[in-house]
Every structure is written in structure tokens, then in C-alpha cells.
């Protein structure tokens, strides 16, 4: 059995590369704030400039610094995920809009980001909040919000809500990734990319917080068609199986809190890709997600709290077709703009 220890060097190599290359910045939390890339990018954005980014960032941290560095209170604030990242002052000219959306956002992400405004005593006139299904479903899709856990806890305390499922996972992804082979492959890829070529731009971050994904926008229509089934599979995996009462209560309290301090809150339900929507309707028991039930819940919540609702998950209701989407999840920017211009 001692011979098993002969494999230890491989594990140590994996751990060494994972921690030293650290492509997702999991192990550099102790770094001084001014040395963090997110800090520099946030400063640039807050000064009103756009910036091209080349790699994945800690989006929660970026939003935290961005809000801290803003010089004026926005008129409109957008909270959402990558589906709504294209929404900015292109749709609301003449108004100061800040889009604080992050990819795959879950409820704790919203809480943490919003806390940044509350701490500054800022209450924008209007808040547009994207209601994606994963806000109220379990398991929580990711734990990226752990980097701003204090802000999330502060917000929960303000709402008088117990953490419930909003807590760190038993096995922290940070420690799981030490020996992760896939993280190792990501590290090797990063090493190779930096040594051999200049990476292509990942996205263009605009001063209003909008994010223009360059990989997506440069994709031609045929490539998109080919990639769609893969996106579809990813998307199907992305959502939780069941709704959670505690998350529903937290969301409701969060909306009420916003209603007290803001003039207007708008719920946004963005349509699903028609194929994916049909897949969800047809999926057998036990369902991954009962999409109609979730939409009904959001609609009732909106009615109960007097919140305006824009859009629907059902693409047929708004007449959306496959051509209105970049991929299986994301609407084209011009289509997104139309939804808000018409509402």
C-alpha cells in the first residue's frame, strides 16, 4: 500500500501548478487590494472609460470596487446575469444607468452587490432586476459570492433574514480545486496561452457596466447553430431541481426593502430559447425545473408587491424565434433593447 505514495509527486505537482498559476484567482485573496486586477479595472470604469478584458475576473469583487469608486448615484441600476449584460445607456439615453450584472448570478450575488449601494447610502430611482429561475432554486449554482460574503451577510442582516441555504458549501471549492485535474488543465492552458500568443479579447466592459462579449458577437451564425446543442446541455445542467422556500422569502424581503427605498422596481423575465423552453416543458418527472410554476410565482410576487413586470420566459408570447438569440441562452443585444424600449 505504501507504493500508492509513489503517486504523491503527481498530486503535489498538480497542487503546485494550481496554486501558483491559479487561473481563476482562487488563492490570491490575501493580495493587497491595490494589487488586484479587479480594483484597477473598476477604477477605469468608474472614471467613465471603457476597457477590454482578456481573462475571467472575480466579478463580485469587480462590482464591489466599481460601486465603491462610482462618483455619482445612478438613476437606474440593473441587477442580473449575463442575459441582461447588454443593457445600458443605449436603451435609456439621458439617464445615468449602471449595470451590475454578473454571469450566472444567483440571489446572494444580488444581495452582495446591492449592499455596496446601501453602504454608500445610495438609492437609485429605479432598479431593474432580472428574475432568472436560479434565484429561487437549489442547489445554488456556484459560490463565487463567497469573496464578498461579508456584504452578503450584512444585507441578510438588514433584511432580518437567516442565511438558510446561502452559506458556504461544506467542501470549499477553493480547497477542492487544489487537487482538481480540470483546474490543472486550465492552469496549463493559461501558461501555454501567455507563453505562445496574445489571447483574444474576452469582452469589452463599458463605463456603464455593460459587457459586450466578443467571443459571442464574433461567432458566425453557422457556428452558433453548431454550438447551440452544447450550450443547451450546459444550460440544462445550470438550473437547480427545486424551488426553495427560504430563497423565496429572502427574495421577497429584498424586493420589499428596495420598494421602501426606491421609487420604482421593475421585474424582468427574459424569454428562453424556444428549443430550450420546449425541452423544459417536455422534460419528464422528476423535472429539472418547473418553468411555468416559477414564472407564475414571480408574477404573483410582482402583483402582491405592486412591481411592474417586463417580459416572459415563454418565447412565443413575445414572438421570439431562434434567430433572436446568439446561442441557447442569450438574446441578441438589439432584441434586448427592443424589449425595454417597448416597455
Amino acid at each position: 500500500m505504501v507504493k500508492i505514495l509513489f503517486f504523491l509527486p503527481i498530486l503535489l505537482l498538480v497542487a503546485f501548478v494550481n496554486i501558483s498559476v491559479d487561473p481563476q484567482g482562487l488563492y490570491d485573496c490575501q493580495k493587497d487590494k491595490s494589487q488586484q486586477e479587479e480594483y484597477g479595472i473598476a477604477k477605469t470604469l468608474a472614471s467613465g472609460q471603457d476597457i477590454q478584458i482578456f481573462k475571467g475576473l472575480d466579478e463580485n469583487l469587480l462590482q464591489k470596487y466599481f460601486i465603491e469608486d462610482l462618483t455619482a448615484i445612478p438613476d437606474i441600476l440593473v441587477l442580473g446575469s449575463s442575459q441582461i449584460m447588454g443593457l445600458g445607456d443605449n436603451v435609456f439615453p439621458g439617464q445615468r444607468i449602471i449595470n451590475n450584472s454578473i454571469t450566472n448570478a444567483a440571489l446572494p450575488d444580488y444581495l452582495g452587490i446591492f449592499d455596496g449601494y446601501v453602504k454608500r447610502g445610495w438609492y437609485p430611482k429605479r432598479v431593474i432586476i432580472l428574475l432568472s429561475p436560479q434565484l429561487i432554486t437549489l442547489p445554488l449554482y456556484h459560490s463565487k459570492w463567497l469573496t464578498v460574503k461579508e456584504d452578503v451577510d450584512d444585507m441578510l442582516q438588514r433584511l432580518g433574514q437567516r442565511a438558510g441555504p446561502i452559506k458556504p458549501p461544506v467542501l470549499s471549492p477553493v480547497w477542492l480545486n487544489v487537487f482538481s485535474f480540470s483546474y490543472f488543465q486550465e492552469s496549463v492552458k493559461k501558461l501555454r496561452d501567455t507563453q505562445t500568443k496574445v489571447p483574444k479579447g474576452l469582452c469589452l466592459l463599458l463605463h456603464d457596466g455593460r459587457c459586450l462579449w466578443q467571443k459571442v458577437s464574433s461567432m458566425n451564425s453557422k457556428d452558433r447553430d453548431i454550438k447551440t446543442p452544447n450550450y443547451m446541455k450546459q444550460a440544462q445542467m445550470a438550473w437547480g431541481l427545486k424551488t426553495d422556500q427560504n430563497l423565496e422569502n429572502t427574495l421577497e424581503k429584498f424586493i420589499l426593502y428596495m420598494k421602501v427605498h426606491h421609487e420604482q422596481v421593475t421585474f424582468c423575465l427574459l424569454p428562453f430559447h424556444p428549443k430550450q423552453y420546449q425541452w423544459l416543458l417536455d422534460s419528464p418527472w422528476p423535472k429539472r425545473m418547473d418553468i411555468i410554476k416559477i414564472e407564475n410565482y414571480y408574477r404573483k410576487l410582482g402583483q402582491r408587491l405592486g412591481v411592474k413586470i417586463v417580459g416572459s420566459y415563454d418565447p412565443a408570447l413575445g414572438g421570439f424565434t431562434q434567430d433572436d438569440f446568439y446561442d441557447a441562452m442569450h438574446l441578441k443585444n438589439e432584441v434586448l433593447e427592443k424589449i425595454f424600449v417597448n416597455n
Partner: peptide, 18 residues
Amino acid sequence: WTYYYGLVLAMVFWGCYG
């Protein structure tokens, strides 16, 4: 041992863990 190491290293470098 070359074989064992090769197998493990192949899994480390080229395995798909999705």
C-alpha cells in the same frame, strides 16, 4: 511504473471531468 505514471499523467493532462 512508467505505464502507471503514464496512465495517471494522461488523466491529469487530458481527462475530461465534466
